[in-house]
Write a protein that binds this DNA or RNA. Structure first.
Lengths: 123, 123
DNA sequence: CCAACTGTATTATAAGTATTGATACACTTA
DNA sequence: TAAGTGTATCAATACTTATAATACAGTTGG
């Protein structure tokens, strides 16, 4: 379900956050479905439970999950979280567009590339 | 010429590298033009000379500048550096496209946004 | 009831990276 | 020759990440 990339410069807990965000946003984890327990996921990924705890705390803080003491963490119904994430995505796209300009990538080239590579399926 | 963003998660030396790459790639710093001296730029930015040294070392390693002992660092003629950077740019774009899919951003929406925001000038 | 799950909090430690600070040395140039 | 340049090195500090070891409280199925 989750695969860590130790070549990735970003910290482990952040990778975990992003993976669950993706699973939640694309519907693989519907509202009220349960996430793996802190200890269980730590076992599966061979990392420390505290790292999972940190990731879950952030997911909660961003509104993606809600915790129930003694039972587990569950996917939230919060639609705001998704739209905040979308806004951040478009900000990233804007930053990349700026970068493209300074690198001398033309509008046509950019759009052509995006058009060619933006298809469903090949996730 | 260079403005540091202390909110940015990336290290200072990396911000400096990227700024000079942009200045070189968009022609603001033509080949053989001289970069500020290590000590001078450190003074201007109120940071340690070692940090500048590290940034310049990376710019040299990537082929953007060449150093002359006792004289300074100068913009290289290396065209490979630019094309390598372009490749990395398109890899970033590809990653962002993948992300967009998992966030439920449609192809049309993506292309529409890129088309609207990709114009020269507003750098 | 209780054992075995859950989440949560705390403290300590280790490791890696970024940055600063202080030198020192070699080369170039006005 | 003085003042600029690059380059190398070492130490110290600060911050972040991740691990390790507990402890405590709530939930649940047998």
């Amino acid at each position: 379900m989750i695969i860590l990339d130790y070549q990735d410069r970003r910290p482990i807990y952040e990778q975990i956050v992003e993976k669950f965000q993706a699973l939640i946003l694309n519907g693989a984890l519907p509202p009220d479905s349960q996430l793996p327990s802190v200890r269980r996921l730590a076992m599966d990924l061979s990392i420390n439970p505290n790292t999972i705890q940190r990731a879950y705390a952030q997911l909660e803080q961003e509104g993606f999950v809600y915790p129930v003491k003694g039972r587990g963490n569950f996917v939230s119904h919060d639609m705001e979280a998704a739209s905040r994430k979308r806004e951040m995505f478009f900000q990233e796209l804007l930053d990349l567009i700026k970068k493209g300009r300074t690198y001398g990538v033309s509008r046509e080239e950019f759009l052509r590339f995006a058009d060619d590579h933006y298809r469903e399926g090949a996730i």
